[in-house]
Design a protein around this nucleic acid. Structure first.
Lengths: 151, 151
DNA sequence: TATTGTTATACTCTATAACTATA
DNA sequence: TATAGTTATAGAGTATAACAATA
């Protein structure tokens, strides 16, 4: 059973608000979060912690400040997320190379392994969520979202 | 000062996660919510209450159940939102035409007036948020979001 | 028996300010 | 003085279950 099998255009989709980008983003984001969190549950992760783990696995050696900015979260929320992942042995903190105030978040081998499984599950969710779009349309959507965010 | 003046592509945008639709939706949605709620403050509204008011003004005579489904909110949350708007004299409840359990949410003349101003403000926010996109691109984005949601 | 609206409650997420250590 | 991380707390948003009225 995939998503669009249940997708029925509701009566209210005729309303002007159904063209508001804010509402469209909210609805698609909310629907995706439900799928993602459901899929991540078997890995003991949620969207937030998954995002932090994923960036820790990126090879970009993100500082907590960068994680906060990039994930649109408050620095204090990053602390809690990293604490949790660190407590499970999935990531660890390292002192910044040039600034000793900074803490770089890196993945342990176990974190890498968990991420491999989780990212495959998330890719499947994404495919399911965008099942109504062709591959080209999905690529266009990604491109436009990126452009709107980062010009 | 418009949005993309501040938009600098962050270093982490090179990471694989920067192409995850989930993250892109979350970031754009979060940024839009900040703009929208800031703009709605002068009307004493927030995104949620604005959405309910907007649908009450749509002429579609939505029931609370329809509002809940369409806005991806729990029916109990709609109760609180309608209570608040009703208390301010912006909307009122009417018994369902065929089913006396249902309550239709309609706007008062004052609700219509407030909505006229608020919706103009929201349109401006949307324009600002999508400033990096051409009109054609913004239209494509809307179309793809709608298609992903409602096939 | 199922559904609409309602109430209540607990949980997650978000926003804010203050503190420490470094710069 | 400014910034990175941390702690604490309050507010907003979300999820769930139970109930009365109606179907």
């Amino acid at each position: 059973m995939s998503v669009q099998d249940e997708a029925v255009v509701p009566r209210l989709a005729e309303a002007a608000i159904a063209d508001d980008v804010g509402l469209l983003l909210a609805k698609l984001h909310a629907a995706g979060s439900v799928l993602n969190n459901k899929a991540l549950a078997e890995f003991g992760l949620r969207e937030r912690s998954y995002s932090v783990l994923r960036l820790a696995c990126s090879g970009l050696e993100p500082t907590q400040r960068e994680l906060a900015e990039f994930l649109s979260l408050d620095p204090s929320q990053i602390v809690a997320l990293v604490d949790e992942l660190e407590g499970r042995g999935l990531v660890y903190r390292e002192q910044g190379r040039t600034d000793r105030r900074q803490k770089i978040v890196l993945a342990t081998p176990e974190g890498e392994r968990l991420h491999a499984g989780a990212s495959a599950a998330i890719a499947a969710c994404e495919h399911e969520q965008l099942a109504a779009l062709t591959d080209a349309e999905a690529a266009t959507l990604r491109k436009l979202l990126r452009k709107a965010l980062w010009a």
